[in-house]
Design a protein around this nucleic acid. Structure first.
Lengths: 167, 167
DNA sequence: CCTGCATGATTGAGAGTTCAACAAGTACAC
DNA sequence: GTGTACTTGTTGAACTCTCAATCATGCAGG
């Protein structure tokens, strides 16, 4: 790895760590939830009936079942999510976003979106934003083709979610 | 935030989280240390006498003093770092990389560098690498201008470290 | 049937991070 | 000097995440 590449690598690392750190702090401070939980709420809010199987929910991001189980337990304590067993497959569980959880998400979203805009998009030119999109796709491709968080609704028409929960 | 921006944001998030996750796992698996500890060892290895004040070390990345204190405690248990008090300012402490710690770093570095290359640089065109560098700089600039991890040894003469610890 | 194995999800222990509180030392006025 | 304010670094508790082990259920083959 050349010195130049190393500089870019360090700069990238610093930028992404700093950015995720800033977002995590903002969410924790203003909404009282870690970023990972926010993502869970978003995923649920966009699902039909605001309901997802645990394994589906885990698959949306590269989250382990264990991690999700712990997280849902916490979210259930907070009253933001509730569980329900799956009748057809008695092993399975559904996670369901409660009204209270949806309200918490609605109240958390604007601040988070503002933070993303200020810290990321406002810093880049329109060309750089496009470039970042391409680069992100390429990196994801290299991660074993895991679909992960890539918009499941990335169809040509797009738009399949409620406006308020958009990033 | 437009749908298009949201797509890019999610893609970016997924890419960076997936990438840092892959790197963290690789390091934990093959070198038995978290990525944050690896960075500490790198910083120490590049410092004069492989020694840094705790606060300097914390400042290199946006690490809190508390976090660093805990981390150094663990690294000291592992025999990779030792502490020494500062004679002129009795509050201060030095963290010093031991030979054993340097050896651990030398053995961890190649695998880590390979992972970074495979997962990041090999996925991008040379133009995209340059773009990523510019974008990262811009993002850092937006984070309150914190210098953070940007090479402290980026002086004209450069080269203050052994080749093996380079990224 | 029922044995063997895969799957969905949970649990508990261990590790790292954060936050607030703290101890110890320094700086600087008065 | 004495007092006040700031800096440096550590500590403990709470929280999240990971890993391995576990439980319960589904499913296929003999």
């Amino acid at each position: 790895m050349t010195d130049h590449e190393q500089q870019i690598w360090r700069s990238f690392l610093s930028a992404t760590l700093g950015l995720t750190d800033a977002l995590a702090r903002q969410l924790q401070r203003e909404a009282g939830m870690p970023h990972a939980y926010y993502e869970i709420l978003v995923a649920l809010s966009e699902a039909p009936d605001r309901t997802l199987r645990m394994s589906e929910l885990a698959g949306i991001r590269g989250s382990s079942r264990s991690r999700l189980s712990h997280a849902i337990a916490r979210l259930e304590e907070a009253g933001w999510v509730r569980r329900r067993g799956c009748p057809t497959d008695k092993r399975g569980s559904y996670a369901i976003l409660t009204d209270k959880g949806f309200a918490a998400l609605e109240s958390a979203a604007p601040g988070h979106v503002t933070e993303v805009r200020e810290k990321l998009f406002d810093q880049l030119t329109p060309e750089q934003v496009e470039q970042l999109g391409e680069i992100s796709m390429a990196i994801q491709r290299g991660l074993g083709g895991a679909p992960q968080l890539t918009c499941p609704n990335l169809t040509a028409n797009g738009r399949a979610q409620t406006a308020d929960t958009r990033h």
